[in-house]
Amino acid sequence: MTAHMTATRKEWLAARLDLLAEEKELTRRSDELAVRRQALPWVRIDKDYRFETENGSASLIDLFKGRSQLLVYHFMFGPDYTAGCPSCSSIADGFNGFVVHLENHDVAFSAISRAPLAKLQAFKQRMGWTFPWASSFGSDFNGDFSVCFTEDQQREGGIEYNFRREAPSPQPRQERGSEKPVSQMAAMTGTDAATFTRERPGLSAFALDDGVVYHTYSSYARGLDGLWGMYQWLDRAPKGRNENGIWWRHHDQYGRS
């Protein structure tokens, strides 16, 4: 028998209407924040970033594909990874469906990672994805947008992520069979925790105006929650996120030991 509170339909409706008022307020507040995002000042980008794509070498302007706006998902897939970050992969499972809608609303989209293009393409094929994915291997792009850090930065406290500086983190000793969440995710990418966390997830937005690219917005860490489709569904499920550690996998790994 359930231990959760139960009620009559009339009592449920009264409670639901109270919650609805707060949900509406949250929606209005979200609309206000969207306006404030769009009102942020733009920062001109003069550096000539180069990327490798399935269509060859490309500049940042090329990624716009003739559109005036570009959204980039900074996908955690470092040069030493053998597979993409499982969290980024879970988010990316939703990209295929919406890219066509963005592209028909003057917004280009691309995932960008530091791994060489051949690695990205192999993993993309494995996952059955079709969205654009560019390699920034050898470029300053990931470092400049605070989603990639060096071993020295990690060890000496030089990592500034999500607009705050992190404490020094000496390379952790990895234990066989560790159940720590970061170690679990690192293992899914074929790396150790230190290597894994030198890459970080994020979203950045760019505008193209009169031939000039501007950086307009970036978000990191839990600022990406809204992009993670499964969580939007779980937050509306009876038991919510109901998590105990890392439970998600690459979508082709469920059911495997």
Rank of each mutant, 00 (worst) to 15 (best):
M1Q: 06
M1L: 08
T2R: 08
A7Y: 11
W12I: 05
W12T: 06
A15K: 14
L20I: 04
E22G: 12
E23S: 10
S30H: 13
D31Q: 11
A34Q: 03
R36A: 11
L40N: 15
I45D: 02
D48L: 13
F51T: 00
F51H: 05
G56T: 04
Q69G: 10
L70N: 12
Y73H: 14
Y73E: 02
F75C: 13
G78Q: 14
Y81N: 14
S89H: 13
S90T: 13
D93K: 15
V99E: 02
V100Y: 05
I112R: 06
P116M: 08
A118F: 11
F123Q: 09
K124Y: 06
Q125H: 13
W133P: 01
A134P: 04
S135N: 05
S139M: 11
S139V: 09
G158H: 04
R164Y: 09
P168V: 00
E175F: 00
G177A: 03
E179H: 07
K180N: 01
P181G: 14
V182L: 02
A186P: 02
G190L: 03
G190E: 05
T195P: 13
F196A: 04
E199P: 02
A207G: 08
A221M: 11
G223H: 04
L224I: 07
L227Q: 02
M230S: 13
Y231W: 11
Y231M: 11
G245E: 02
W247H: 13
H251V: 05
R256Y: 11
